[in-house]
Design a protein around this nucleic acid. Structure first.
Length: 862
RNA sequence: GGCGGGAUGGCGGAAUUGGUAGACGCAGUGGACUCAAAAUCCACCGCUGGUAACAGUGUGCGGGUUCGAGUCCCGCUCCCGCUACCA
């Protein structure tokens, strides 16, 4: 064993041994219990960032721990390789997206390997490989046959200069982010997947995901947005038809004083035909951006349509208005307005002087005023004729029953969830496998002609998809007739690829099927780890896709991910200078020197290059814009992978955000160096002489008990609690105790051997490289990666005596030592006999003594 | 606006079932070693008073339950995340 801890030399050697021995190759074996441990695969952006390091370290620690438990562990890694950044890089650097992406993958793969993650690299996949996306195309054809995908015209953000659709995030102040052109709302044909057909199941099954964080389930519930209500048809007064609305508050029906429809609603459009002012208003609404930030500040505006409907209960005429806040995409695009009991309707009615009537009063009899605000709470009906006095449920039922019987309404469950728009007018994605004949008719591809390959050797000019200018791709023929046809140039949303990669990892080389029988063995994923930012989109799509696969006979389980662990962000303090015009320039923490007072508080900071002061900003998520990222590679080069792994696991529990501290990284390195030195000293004394546990001194028996308490504690932290920070703290405590104990006697050396072996095994999942060396130095020939996880010896955990706290009126006054099996009477007597206890009882009468065996005695006196 | 999470020393955090608040680490202070520095080791390290023993006080704020509250209940303040005119 080397005297010096030299991770930069030792780590690549350990990695080479793992690779040679194919230690992490996962082989299906029905006789063994499996554990599928998966981290969200990365987008190959170029370099790993700290978020990746944290995510993959958490996953690797758990995978390695499960392996030491003897489970058959599947721990794969791959690349979410399609997507927009590759196209941007192509435009900037004139390099084809495929080449840019693959070179990034090569670099990042090497980084992951340098971190020592125990992946089965034989299963690596990239979603841009035709072997992968062909099965996506194949599955699309199955969905098409089952009418679960469809093509429909939808409103999108259209950049008239770049000739492309923009995502909402790419529209800045109503203009295209690159062209600066005013974005138009254009209606163009798009592909959708019928996720709404699964809304109910996606919602219901959330209750069965017991090992998912409540926060994620709540977000998905809100996103699906189920509401129960009534779909009511109001007859148009001119007899030209009905105006249908959806409401969750049919109990307020008698309070409806007008109707409001969306600007795109047919009734509004029809009314605008002979009304130029109205037409102009509708046009101005159409120009409005769809982004939430704008909508929030939007004034509630509207115009009367000159149309009326008949109230289904009273027959009264209610005017119909168009209102800019009514959404065509939710419900029927029309609402009944009850200004007395809805905040938005109240605001609108106030603005346009529409009548406001009260039909609900508080159940407790309070008198409310509708002078300045609506009363949106549920209560008891009033001014509602025969329905007066009914509560929400009673009125809902009574009114629903009557309107349904009269054929004017149906009970209806409305979802906020919309069908999933999966087509993108982008080049770097999976081609949607359909063909268009010259007459515009659509023909799906056939299985035999898959994959529809995306040409990778493209000449990138301008911004529109290069596919449109490639006759070799565009010119195709219909499968049966051979007649000429043009290919669809839209590609899939990249969420499509990431919705099933976990299933493909089970059988990445399957040539005859999307997934084969091996998936039955590995699925579902036992533990899925990733950022909370995917709580809704990716995790909802993946759940949905898995159900689609289940219903195609490709999966057995209802849900793909048994347990979900969402890791927190990696943060770092920020430093900036603010120009007189208010723009901030951020400086990387590595280029800043911070001055502290004698308590360690930060006083001021200055830039190293010019020595001038910079402002100290808040601690924020590492990002390019705040220039507060720390490159993992720098730290790996300086301290080695084990230190980076140890620090990221020690600084905070996985679900919390982690504040990066360079000096604390140094501390992690110091700990590993200390453990290395202690082991070096120990083995240098030569072989350990056997000493029976019972023959050890009391001090050494106590130390030995600490070893086994640490094993129990760390096992609980790692297996049940996923609290690696406290697990590491416990091992640090044990190492401190071992250092103090020393190597002076055969007994001490025997306990030292036992203690160091325990530390090595307990740390093996976290710092796998240096523990391999320590394990060998401690005399073990077997590989540590597959060594069994240690089990605490119950005999070593037995204590003879316990420390018990004595309180007087809840305040600590003494510590006493008692036999473990001491009776409450003995505890009470010993406690009262303490001098300091007696001192605080002078002049008082003991009223009660509470004894918590083995913990404390509280003397209540007055 | 709605939903979810949080607030503990100078800092990151610990306290798992209501039972010694501050484990572990970082930073800091004092000392040893050294020509010196680095490294390492030892001691101290919430606040107030005290040489000390020790006492008082202390987990965002105000109440409550309890022998006992960081933990439970009620009311507030602030911060973070998600979502948002969803009828």
């Amino acid at each position: 064993m080397q005297e010096r801890y030299n991770p930069v030399e030792l780590e690549p050697q350990a990695q080479a041994r793992w690779a040679e021995g194919r230690v992490f190759a996962a082989l299906e074996d029905p006789t063994r219990e499996k554990f599928y441990c998966l981290c969200m695969f990365p987008y190959p952006s170029g370099r790993l960032h700290m978020g990746h390091v944290r995510n993959y370290t958490i996953g690797d620690v758990i995978a390695r721990y499960q392996r030491m438990l003897g489970k058959n562990v599947l721990h794969p890694m791959g690349w979410d390789a399609f997507g927009l950044p590759a196209e941007n890089a192509a435009i900037e650097n004139n390099i084809p997206p495929a080449r840019w992406t693959r070179s990034n993958i090569d670099y990042m793969r090497a980084q992951l390997q340098r971190l020592g993650f125990s992946y089965d690299w034989d299963r690596e996949l990239a979603t841009c490989d035709p072997d992968y996306y062909r099965w996506e195309q194949w599955f699309f054809l199955r969905l098409y046959a089952r009418d679960l995908v469809y093509r429909k015209t939808a409103v999108v953000n259209w950049d008239p200069i770049d000739h492309t659709v923009l995502a909402n995030e790419q529209v800045i102040d109503g203009r295209g982010w690159r062209s600066g052109a005013l974005v138009e709302r254009r209606e163009i044909p798009q592909w959708f997947v019928r996720i709404t057909a699964y809304a109910e199941e996606l919602l219901r099954d959330l209750d069965r995901l017991e090992e998912w964080p409540e926060a994620v389930k709540t977000m998905q519930r809100n996103w699906i947005g189920r509401s129960e209500g009534l779909q009511i048809r109001f007859a148009l007064a001119d007899g030209s038809g009905d105006l249908e609305v959806f409401t969750t508050r049919p109990d307020t029906l008698l309070g409806a004083t007008y109707m409001a429809v969306a600007p795109e609603h047919p009734v509004a459009r029809r009314a605008a035909l002979g009304n130029p002012a109205l037409a102009e208003f509708l046009a101005s609404c159409a120009q409005m951006s769809t982004s939430e930030a704008v909508l929030e500040k939007l004034d509630k505006r509207g115009m009367p349509l000159g149309v009326a409907v008949l109230h289904p209960l009273t027959g009264a005429q209610l005017p119909v208005w168009v209102a800019n806040f009514v959404l065509m995409s939710y419900g029927t695009g029309a609402v009944m307005s009850v200004p007395g009991h809805d905040d938005r309707d109240f605001e609108f009615a106030h603005r346009y002087d529409l009548p406001i009537t009260q039909v609900i009063q508080p159940a407790d009899g309070r008198v409310i005023s509708l002078e300045s605000a609506a009363y949106p709470e549920k209560g008891v009906l009033c001014h509602s004729g025969e329905y007066d006095g009914l509560d929400f449920a009673g009125a809902f039922n009574a009114i629903a029953t009557r309107l349904v019987a009269e054929g004017r309404a149906e009970r209806h469950v409305q979802y906020r969830l919309r069908d999933w728009l999966v087509s993108r007018q982008r080049y770097w994605g999976c081609p949607i496998p359909v063909l268009y004949s010259p007459d515009g008719s659509l023909t799906p591809e056939t299985d035999a002609r898959l994959p529809v390959r995306l040409p990778e050797d493209v000449d990138w000019r301008g911004v529109s998809s290069p596919l449109k200018h490639m006759p070799a791709f565009m010119a195709a023929s219909l499968p049966d007739s051979g007649l000429p046809a043009a290919r669809e140039t839209d590609t899939f949303d990249t969420f499509f690829e990431s919705s099933w990669y976990f299933a493909r990892f089970c059988c990445p080389d399957s040539e005859n099927a999307m997934v084969d029988e091996r998936a039955r063995y590995w699925m579902p994923v036992d533990l899925y780890i990733g950022g909370i930012e995917h709580a809704v989109l990716h995790l909802l799509y993946a759940r949905f896709f898995h159900k689609l696969m289940r219903d195609s006979g490709l999966a057995v389980a209802d849900e793909p991910f048994k347990r979900l662990l969402t890791q927190g962000m990696v943060c770092k303090e920020t430093y900036f200078r603010e120009a007189t015009n208010g723009t901030k320039t951020y400086y990387n923490p590595e280029s800043v020197d911070v001055e502290t007072d004698d308590k360690g508080r930060a006083l001021r900071a200055k830039l190293l290059t010019d020595g001038q002061p910079v402002e100290i900003g808040p601690v924020e998520k590492m990002s390019k814009s705040k220039n507060n990222g720390i490159d993992p590679q720098t730290l790996i080069d300086r301290y080695g992978a084990d230190t980076v792994r140890l620090y990221t696991m020690f600084a905070a529990p996985p679900e919390q955000s982690l504040e990066w501290s360079d000096s604390a990284v140094e501390g992690a390195f110091r700990f590993l160096r200390g453990l290395w030195r202690l082991t070096y000293e120990h083995v240098n004394f030569g072989p350990v002489v056997p000493v029976a546990a019972g023959a050890l001194t009391p001090e050494l028996q106590t130390l030995r008990r600490k070893i086994h308490e640490t094993i129990a504690k760390v096992t609980d932290d790692v297996a049940r609690r996923y609290k690696f920070n406290t697990a590491i703290a416990a091992v640090m405590e044990l190492v401190n105790a071992l250092v103090k104990s020393g190597h002076a006697t055969p007994g001490a050396r025997r306990v030292m051997q036992e203690g160091l072996e325990a530390c090595t095994l307990l740390l093996a999942p976290i710092v796998p490289h240096c523990t391999e060396s320590l394990w060998a130095a401690l005399g073990h020939a077997d590989a540590l990666a597959t060594a069994p996880w240690p089990v605490a010896d119950p005999a070593a955990l037995v204590r003879a005596a316990v420390e018990v706290v004595v309180q007087v009126n809840g305040r600590k006054r003494a510590n006493i030592t008692l036999p473990v099996d001491a009776s409450n009477e003995l505890a009470e007597h010993t406690a009262l006999a303490e001098e300091n206890v007696a001192r605080f009882l002078v002049g008082q009468t003991v009223r009660k003594v509470i004894v918590v065996p083995g913990r404390l005695v509280n003397v209540v006196a007055s």
